[in-house]
Write a protein that binds this DNA or RNA. Structure first.
Lengths: 221, 221
DNA sequence: TACCGTGGTGATAGCCCTCTTACATTGACA
DNA sequence: TGTCAATGTAAGAGGGCTATCACCACGGTA
């Protein structure tokens, strides 16, 4: 891959150039935005191209097909998500259970804002592509969470019970994902609970906390 | 709605009749099957018609548009799901926590087998339709779960803490939904846990149990 | 037997999509 | 200055979908 010759597309010239200059990166960025708005199902290459003001054929100069573009988006999503979760854990303070639980809320917020979650990152369609970046990013993401799960269980030191941490991780991930998807699906507005992404994020965090500690006996109000 | 004149399509006559006879019911049934195979995103009226061996125009004799068909499917899914959950709770014995938790596993199995879950039943697209049957079925489903949640918390008698039951319900529902969707999404095959719908169902049940009781300290194995 | 309503059919308009092909434009560099 | 590779474009093949339209087959009934 050669270096980009002159990467500034908003230079002194008038309007748009014939060559976009950063189309590959822009495709990933815009695909990500589109995902946030309409979900993975409605994603289309043509729409991304139109939004960028290029022809619908242009993306195929950079990605052989739709799936490869999706894989690039997924890899980027995984990286960004990992950063958010790491940050959330850090912001949650020293208690390892709180650090772990906080990532559930952060996940819900991320999906709410970006539209891409575990379903996008680990989409089955993308598996046969064997994309290096995506595989790497996905593994890093899971390692981060597994590490936090181990610490939450207090088994970070020895080889105490690797299965317990894995089980907790799965419960945590699935609960967070459930909250995120049902929030965007509109269930919560029907059940009648708190509205908004923040309320949902708090619930997800509480759920994760409960996975480790159990349901609080006096959680009324 | 008039009575069906001669409802048996597989009678003594040769091959298929000009009139299907039970097309409306068959559309719902086949849509349900198709959902199980390809998910809600890939659902199309045309495909359902082809599978039934009728023209792609035929469904529009029974449903004004795609969404109304989907609503009928969703209502039916809700009814069927409620039956399964009720049965699972019954089979789980007398312990209210076990009864409640069992519905998580039953939900995962239902989604695995039928492809339709809360996302289909409470799909946002269907809300503007104001479908009576769907609204009714959805409410009945949630009432069933809420009741089980109350009993699991031991607050079935008085007005102890309605908010706690609602919170537990949400955590339970979202966890179950997360397990179901991530199972079909293929996450578990990557994380490396137990394969198959039964393993996932067991995990979901355990997660729900943990929501009430907390993570078991010695869950290794 | 004539006729009518229900529920089918084939054809088609209109839209969107993916991906390919031939061609145009550009910057880099000899 | 001329050439080339990279990266854009327009056009279109080929396909799927939703929904409509005029028409047809059949059962029931006057």
């Amino acid at each position: 891959m050669p270096e980009h010759p002159r990467p500034e597309p908003s230079g002194g010239g008038r309007g748009r150039r014939y060559h976009h200059g950063e189309l590959r990166a822009a495709l990933i960025e815009t695909s990500f935005d589109l995902l946030a708005e309409s979900g993975p199902a409605a994603f289309s290459v043509a729409q991304v191209a139109r939004r960028l003001g290029v022809s619908t054929a242009a993306p195929y100069r950079h990605f052989p097909d739709r799936d490869h573009l999706m894989a690039a988006v997924a890899a980027r999503a995984a990286g960004e998500l990992a950063g958010r979760l790491r940050q959330a854990a850090q912001d949650a303070g020293p208690d390892p259970v709180e650090r772990f639980a906080a990532t559930a809320g952060a996940y819900v917020r991320f999906v709410g804002a970006r539209g891409a979650g575990f379903d996008v990152i680990f989409a089955r369609d993308l598996e046969p592509l064997q994309d290096r970046d995506l595989a790497e990013a996905g593994r890093a993401l899971m390692d981060l969470l597994l590490d936090l799960a181990r610490q939450a269980l207090g088994t970070g030191l020895g080889t105490d019970s690797p299965q317990a941490a894995l089980t907790l991780l799965e419960q945590h991930v699935t609960a967070a994902h459930g909250y995120a998807t049902l929030h965007s699906g509109g269930l919560f507005s029907r059940v009648g609970s708190r509205e908004g992404i923040d309320g949902t994020a708090d619930l997800a965090t509480a759920a994760s906390r409960a996975l480790v500690r159990g349901a609080p006996a006096d959680s009324g109000g």
